[in-house]
């Protein structure tokens, strides 16, 4: 499939979206480069979907500017933004065949019948839907429906793809496969993707940049490696990574004026250090994860290779954090110091 969308970067300047007293998005500024695969990541209610819908034109920002390419699009209708959107529920038209669903964006634009049938065929081929063109969405599996939604999004070759948790209705195995396919699709289309998810695995594996959101603001923007290796705050540190980063109580590892965090792979069981109790031992096959309770608010996980001797539940242990891999955060604000 020839894909020649006009290139488009996205720039958000001080964008806010308030619903009554609720600040769903609060003064967010973000630059998304042309051809980026940008992930908006955060827990539910953090404003990531609202931000995406603001880019697509489904929400009018309360304040701020939305730029797509060199055009300020605040007052531009979605159809004129060169944006397409894939919804979590796919939003396929149940009364139309797969082909008619894929053709729909062209039909509303007045493209003639032969031309849009051809475009739909090509889009279907890209996504392996050719055998299903005559079927109704109701006769397709969840994964196939998801592909129809994608085909409908690519058929009119937009510059920007907005995706709102498109994989969350798939089962775990299909989700892992589709992740790889979406990355391949992004590579192939060479368009800008803005992708909303609450799943940090999706964020780490698919995006070339991640914006971590909380309570309507962006906590950190960076490559997956940046966000993992140098989290900007305790929140990001605990949101990214499975299991999340261990945060030790102030004063237990270093001076009491800051918090120390360490990834599970950089936390060890030792004979001295921070006192803790083993709460849970999980044998995952390739490794063992030991979850320890330090006090009522702090837990820490240690990764051990299989075959190591593991302390039993309830036994007292001591934890240490690698000197070279410590993350230090402000006690009050939770922001990164070093």
């Amino acid at each position: 499939m020839q894909y020649d969308a006009s290139v488009a970067s996205i720039r958000l300047v001080g964008v806010s979206k308030h619903f009554g007293d609720v600040k769903a998005v609060d003064n967010v500024s973000l630059d998304i480069a042309d051809r980026d695969f940008m992930i908006l990541l955060g827990p539910s209610g953090c404003g990531k979907s609202t931000l995406l819908r603001t880019i697509a034109g489904l929400e009018d920002p309360t304040a701020g500017e939305v730029w797509i390419g060199d055009k300020m699009v605040n007052d531009v209708e979605p159809k004129d933004r060169d944006v397409s959107m894939v919804f979590q529920s796919y939003a396929l038209y149940p009364h139309k065949s797969v082909q008619a669903n894929i053709e729909f964006p062209l039909k509303v634009r007045g493209v003639d019948k032969a031309e849009r049938a051809e475009a739909a065929k090509q889009a279907a081929e890209v996504l392996g839907l050719t055998p299903y063109l005559e079927r109704r969405p109701g006769a397709l599996s969840g994964g196939q429906r998801q592909r129809v939604a994608l085909a409908r999004a690519i058929v009119r070759q937009p510059a920007v793809f907005c995706m709102d948790e498109p994989l969350s209705n798939l089962d775990a195995k299909l989700r892992a496969e589709t992740r790889a396919e979406l990355v391949a699709l992004h590579h192939r289309l060479d368009a800008t993707f803005v992708y909303v998810t609450h799943d940090q695995v999706e964020a780490m594996t698919m995006g070339n940049r991640i914006a971590v959101m909380r309570d309507g603001i962006i906590e950190q923007v960076g490559t997956p490696k940046d966000v993992y290796d140098k989290p900007a705050s305790v929140f990001v540190a605990e949101f990214i990574g499975t299991p999340p980063m261990n945060i030790f109580p102030a004063g237990s590892v270093e001076a009491a004026d800051h918090l120390v965090g360490a990834r599970p792979e950089h936390t060890h069981l030792a004979t001295t250090g921070v006192a803790a109790t083993v709460a849970l031992v999980e044998h995952l096959g390739h490794e063992i994860q030991v979850v320890c309770t330090i006090d009522s608010e702090h837990r820490a996980t240690v990764r051990l290779p299989t075959g190591t001797e593991v302390p039993s539940n309830g036994s007292p242990v001591f934890l240490t954090a690698d000197e070279n891999h410590r993350h230090r955060f402000n006690v009050e604000t939770g922001l990164r110091i070093s």
Binding site: G57, L58, M85, F87, Q88, Y93, P105, V108
Partner: peptide, 15 residues
Amino acid sequence: VPKEMHESAYVDGAG
């Protein structure tokens, strides 16, 4: 009628 169907059609340019 799911709201997202209208939104999807709206983004796709349907008046």
